[in-house]
Simulated scan of single mutants.
Amino acid sequence: MKTTRRITVLGTTALAGLAFAGAAAAQDDTMTIGITQNNVGVDSYQTTYEQAFENAAAELDNVDTIVLDAGGDVARQIAQIQDLIQQQVDAIIIWPTNGQAVVPAVRQAKQAGIPVVITNSNIAEEGFDFIASFSGPDNITQGSRSAEIMCDRFKEQGIETEAQIVQISGQPGYTTALERAKGFEDRLPEVCPEVTLVETQPGDWNREKSQRVMESFLTKYDDIDGVYAGDDNMGVGALNAAKAAGRAEDITFVGATNFAVGYEAMGRGEYWGSIYQSPVDDAEAALQTAIDVLNGAEVPFLNYFDTPKITQENMEEFDKPVF
C-alpha cells in the first residue's frame, strides 16, 4: 500500500525511527523516494507543488515517498539529505535551498549509490557529476523571455530608446533567482540596447518585502518605466506599491512565473506579462524523472518542461494558475 509521510527534519537523527530501506524496497519491488523541498510555506507555488507531488505518488502502487520541507534552512536541508542517505532510500529528489551549499551532501548520496534528481532550481555546476538529472524549468530562458516581453512592450509604446527599469530578484544565492536575473540581464541589451537597468534589489520571493523594495525605488527614481520581478508574487508587491503612489499606470510590470494574482492583475490591465509555469507539471515531472532513473530509462540530464510567454494579449489561451 502506498504511503506518504510529510516530515520536517531538524537534525541528522530525526528519521532514525523510519523503517524505509533500499533492501526492503528491492524485496517487494516498491520504490522509496525521498524529497526535501526548499520552503513550502514561502509561497503558493511551493505549497501547490507539494500537494501535486503527493497526489501523483498516491496514484502509484509501487512508490512510497518521504516528503520533507527544509523551511528555507540550508543546514536543515543538508541534515535531511543525510538522513535519507542513512535510511537507504532508492532515490532522492532535492529542491535546493542553496545550489552551492548542498553540493557536498549530494556527493554523499552519489557515494552511497543513491541517484539524485534536482527539481525546480538547479545546483551549482560543480555538483553536476553527482546527480542523475535536473527536472524543472529553464530559468535562464525564462529570464530571457521576460526581457523580450518587456522590450516588445516598450517598442509598442515608442520608449525603447529611453526607458529605465528596476529589477526585483528572488532569494540571494538561490539558483533560480540567479538564473532568472542572468537570463533577463543578458537578453535585454540584445533586444533593447538603449534600455537602462538602473538597480536590482532582492525581494526574497515575498510580496510584502517586494512592496517595500518598490516603495524605495519609487522614492529614489522619478522615472521608472518598467519593473522586472523574478516571479509574479513579487511583481504584484511592486504593483501594489506603485498603485499606492499613484504611478502604476506609467509602469510596465513583467514577472517570470505567472501566479494567480499576476493573472488577475493582467485581466484588470494593471500587469503586462509573465512566464507561464505549472507547479503541478513541475512536481509530476520530478517524480516521473526519479522513477525513470530507477527503472534504468534514458533520461535527459537537463529535463526541462516548456514555459511559454503570457501577456495581456494572449492570456485567454491559458488557464488561470491554481497557485
Rank of each mutant, 00 (worst) to 15 (best):
G113C: 06
S121V: 00
Q87D: 07
A124R: 14
I114C: 03
L84A: 02
Q77E: 14
D129P: 09
V116D: 11
Q82S: 10
A75G: 14
G113S: 11
I78Q: 12
F134V: 01
V89Y: 09
P96T: 07
W95H: 14
T97S: 08
I94G: 00
E125F: 13
Q77L: 06
F134Y: 15
V117G: 05
G136E: 03
A105D: 08
I131W: 13
V102G: 01
A109E: 06
R107D: 04
A105H: 07
T119H: 11
I78K: 15
G127H: 14
D138P: 08
F128M: 07
V89W: 12
K110D: 12
T119M: 07
A112W: 12
V116R: 09
Q100G: 01
D138Q: 14
I123D: 07
F128T: 05
E148S: 15
V117S: 06
S121A: 11
V89C: 05
T97W: 04
A132W: 06
N98E: 08
V89H: 13
N122M: 09
A105V: 02
A105W: 07
A112F: 11
Q100M: 00
K110H: 15
R145F: 13
Q100D: 11
A109G: 10
G127Q: 10
F130Q: 04
F128S: 09
Q88C: 00
I94R: 08
N98V: 00
I114M: 07
F134K: 06
Q142W: 03
V116Y: 11
G143L: 04
K110I: 00
P104I: 06
N120I: 04
P104V: 04
G99P: 00
I81S: 03
Q100T: 14
I114S: 04
R76G: 03
D83R: 02
W95I: 09
I78R: 12
Q88Y: 10
